[in-house]
Amino acid sequence: MSEPDDHDDVTAEPISFEAFRRSFYYGDHADMQFKYLARMSDEDAADVIAEVLQTVGEVVDTGDVDRLRQVVTDAQIRGYEPDEPAAPTVEDAPFTPLSTPLVDARLALLSAGGVFVQGDDPMGPDGPTQDQALDLIQEFLRGKATLSEIPADTSVDALTARHPGYDARTAQRDPQTVFPLGHLRALADEGRVRLADTHYAFTGATSQRRLEKQTAPAWAEHMAAREVDAVFLVAT
């Protein structure tokens, strides 16, 4: 079997390994599951790619997807090792004890996973798709977060998600990966918890300073006014 020899193709632009690994961060190979390759050293990124590919080869034979999931997760942990604390930093630790038994407390779900009810897009009826959102990452990071309200009786199948910071196609396939409303409803039916009438989501890729100074305190005031006693938060 003969194959064309790409090395003889003088018209092809060469790509360095550094440029390749950086392209996973909102570049030509934008991939929210592997964007951290951009912040790794060449050597560490090469190790991750080789290990993932080798594991893919094994899983094709064994079907052991858990093994692949573990390799991907461990690589993310290495990829996101902090260089230094991110801003903003804090010096205190506010804490409110749960004042009543859970079964009597009004509990709301609040996810940063960009979940919303289909047909109620927080960015309007012509809001961007997941792919389009990736191109808008800088706008999201400068912008103000919008709180989507999701009624407690909303079918999980009626939910969707969009987010420029993680691969929201996962949440589109199963919203409960980041917004476990169905599980909380089941627990309410079992008498374990009492749910608020409204639950919430926003897109966590947003201006941190504005969130800290303006948006989050306003949301807290809004929920306190609705007599929410406890909130179950999900990060993505």
Partner: peptide, 10 residues
Amino acid sequence: ALEAAGIATV
């Protein structure tokens, strides 16, 4: 922000 407003969180 929620804790500061008297709402318990996890």
